[in-house]
Each structure stands twice: as C-alpha cells, then as structure tokens.
Design a protein around this nucleic acid. Structure first.
Lengths: 241, 241
DNA sequence: GTTGTTGCGTCGGGAAGTCGACAGAGCATG
DNA sequence: CATGCTCTGTCGACTTCCCGACGCAACAAC
C-alpha cells in the first residue's frame, strides 16, 4: 500500500464529484513535519487539515502543563471540522504526531462551500458525530482499562493511519499521550516486546504482530473503528486486519 | 431559587422570540423519574430533552456490562441535539440520574425548525461543540485525576443543575458513574464527610460546603463550566459559587 | 575519537485503587 | 415485632501505577 495515489484521505475521497470540484481549487497539499503545532486552546481554527498519511493528536492541556491526548485524527477524518460551519475556537492543542502529508483548506473557504452543499454538510456532521463517539469511548477507556490495553489500542489506531509497520516515537512522548509515567511505558513496552508483538529500539517501534496487539487491546479500539465505519464508510474498502 | 418558573433550561431560554414561537407548540412538559432510560446505544434518537431541573447521564456501555458516565446533561444543554439536523443513532445509554422536569420535542419537528432558522442552527452547533469540549476534558480527567477530585467535580456539576443542596444517590450508583469500586467511593465519601464538606446518609448526599468541594475538585470542573459559559451564555446570569 | 545529548532500562519505596467477603445499620412491609 | 432487603462501613491482601533517581547505550556533531 505505498501507492503514489496522493489522496488517501477518506473524507475527501467520499466527496461527490460536484463537492470535490468546488473544493479542489482551494485545497493545498502540505507536508506535515513531526511535532508541528496546528492550534492551541483558544486559537481560532483558521485552517482545516485532511491527513493522507500523517496523524494529528488532539491534546487537552492541563494547568500543570501536562498535555494528554483526547483524540487522534488520521485519514479517516480531518482536523478543524467543528469550524466548518461557523468560526470556532480550538479547545485543544493539535499537533502532528506522525509526519506525513495532508491537504488543507481555509476554514472560511470550506464554510462557503458547505452553505451550497447539504450533502457536504451531512458528511461533516457525520464526521463530528464520529469524533464525539471517539471521545466518549476514550472517557470510559481511560477510567477502566489498563495501560497495556491502552498502549495496544494506541499502536493499532496509529498503524491504521499510516503506510508502514514502523512508527517513530519515543516512550517519553507516548507516556504523555497516555497520561502515564515514562517508566510505566518502558515496562509495558518491554512486556509486549517479550511477547513478540512489537520491537522497540531507540525511538522506533516496529509492529510485528497485529493480531497479537488486537488481542491485547481493549474493546475500545474496535468500537471506535466501527463507529467511523458506520458513519463514514471507507470509499476504498480496505482494511488491515 | 425554588421559583415556580417552568422554563429553567438555558438553551430554551436563549432562543430568540421567533425561534421559541416556532418550537413552543411542539414542546411538551414532562416529569423525568429517576432511572428512566431514554436511549441505548444503537437506538435512533427520536426525542430531544431539555432538562429544567433533572440531570441526564450519557453512559458508555462496555462489553463487560459496565456502564460508565461519559458526560452529563442538565439545564445548560439538551440531550439528543446531535440528531437535530439529520436522523442519528445514539452512541451511549442515556438515563435520568436525578429526577425532575424537562421539555421534550420530536427530533423530526426540531429538524424542521432548524432548517428555517440559522440562528437556532448555530445555537445547537455551539451546544454540540461545548458537549465535545466536555467529553475531551473528561478523557484527560479520567486519566490524570484522583477519585476524590473527580468525586468533588461530579457533585459540583450535579449541584449546579438542581435547586437543592440534597442529592439522592447511592454509593453503588456513583461508583458506576466514576468507574471505580464501591468501596473506594465509601472511602472517599468518608473522607469528605470528615472534612465537613458533605453529609452522607443512606442514599442521600447533602452538600454542606460548596467552596470546600471546589477546592477539592480538579480544574476540569471549572474548565468545562467556562466552556459552556463561553459558547452558551447563561440568559439568567446566575451562578452558585 | 571525544563529547554531549537523547532515549531506554532498572530499582525501590510508596500511594491509590481493586476485589472479595462480611457485618451492621436503616428502612419498608406484613 | 419480625422479616427481608438495601445500603454503608470495614478489613486485608493484592495489583497497578506513581515518582524520583541513576546508569548505560545509541546516536550525532565536531
């Protein structure tokens, strides 16, 4: 799946030809380098990003300075669609977690098009609903599930959104995402490595056994995935597992 | 604040006279008895509820049968507004957690009105955004904060939505909400009682010291509250603390 | 090759919360 | 008053995760 096809974003690929025609002239292809900050809480959302093979994290900032992940966005969705109808402030920090490419468009330009296409408006509505479903599942997940299960879930949903079995990320970073201590991540990563599910080497994770990770992950992984599939059917119809 | 004013719901009270005129004939006043089930995951959302002095919980159901709270809805909002534009399935179980009164309307009727009023559409849009903000804050909260802090937060946000300092709820029930063991709730409740913040007696909690609870609660309580205030200003302009 | 930096592994004490079990208290019903 | 049920308090062992500290390994820069 390392096809040269530029538009892997499922939301863009789901657009009707008419809608796509209206948007395409305003869409810009961008490289998203790792760590790039798209938005902080309180910032107006001026640009909307449709990831092709990058992953964007929505992080909730706490007073302590901690930043914990509340949702991730990849090729199944887009960042900033809450602002697709009317101007809106971001409530989270949005950063590029895994580098790659995306298409972007000005929020005002998208809002113009949305006014003319109820079909596009419904697509965005469905996306926002799925994102909400993602969030409430994570509320439950963070309260009930072990770090190991959440770690597996995280790796899987990241893996779904990229075209490689190798993910570049440090344990420190992952600890922030999951909202746990770095040493806890080390312990869990060691455990998964012993089981042969992943390999960890200095900032790089290799996914060795997807099925094993799925067995170790909590139900939340599949639950969120099914919600997206129901509300935003995959126009490519592909799947990894 | 035990005024006989029937419409305490802030969303309804924020409507323009025109919008309210269009809706009022379709709105029905209902008593919401404790424990009433409004929706289960997968059910179509057919009715939208605007609480006046009851509290509705959105609960995420897990495969194990556990049901944990992912958001609460009171007089500052409404249940079911994701379905205000187009038909939608519920993703959570919605139950009445604290009894009281609400106004309800058929989703189809509201959708008709929304088509005619962009102002109403924007109000609903803001509500859904605030609810999303509520959810992502809870994602972080459940990952980072102690049970005691979350317990305080829960009591405060419940207290905000009713007209009494007495809340009827068992520790068992609260344990489900918070996603913890019942014995843990007992321990925390005992601690708060010793500090003089609450009184607990067989299914009934009395709020004795709001300021003390606010000191014990995590920042999430205030954060969520400010988000609602920003997106949906209180038309009554009142506050409890 | 040396140095500096970054990321990982480990160790140990401690706090928080789990889980099962049981006793007792409050309340309603007959 | 007796019965039964529901809700709360307690206990103890156990697990998970926190939190700070330290050393080492890998990599980059010069």
């Amino acid at each position: 799946m390392t096809s040269p096809l530029p538009l892997k974003n499922r939301l863009l690929a789901s657009l009707s030809p008419d809608d796509f025609a209206m948007l395409s002239s305003q869409l810009t292809f961008v490289e998203m380098e790792k760590g790039r900050l798209l938005c902080d809480p309180g910032d107006p959302i001026e640009t909307i990003y449709f990831p092709h093979d990058c992953v964007i994290s929505l992080m909730t900032l706490m007073e302590s300075g901690a930043a914990i992940e509340s949702a991730t966005i990849g090729r199944e969705g887009a960042f900033g669609l809450m602002a697709a109808v009317a101007p809106r402030q971001s409530m989270s920090r949005a950063i590029v977690q895994v580098p790659g490419r995306a298409s972007r468009i000005a929020a005002t330009a998208l809002a113009e098009t949305v006014k003319r296409s109820t079909r596009l408006a419904h697509l965005i509505d469905h996306h926002n609903d799925a994102l909400f479903g993602h969030a409430i599942q994570s509320v439950a997940c963070n309260a009930l599930h072990s770090v190991e299960a959440r770690f597996c879930r995280w790796l899987l949903s990241c893996h779904d959104r990229i075209d490689s079995d190798t993910i570049s990320l440090t344990q420190e970073f992952l600890a922030d995402m999951l909202g746990v201590q770095r040493t806890t991540v080390t312990a869990v990563a060691g455990s998964l490595q012993t089981k042969g599910l992943i390999r960890y080497r200095r900032g790089i994770v290799d996914i060795l056994d997807r099925a094993g990770l799925e067995a170790g992950a909590c139900e939340c992984y599949d639950s969120v995935r099914r919600t997206y599939e129901r509300l935003l059917p995959d126009p490519f119809g592909q799947s990894k597992s």
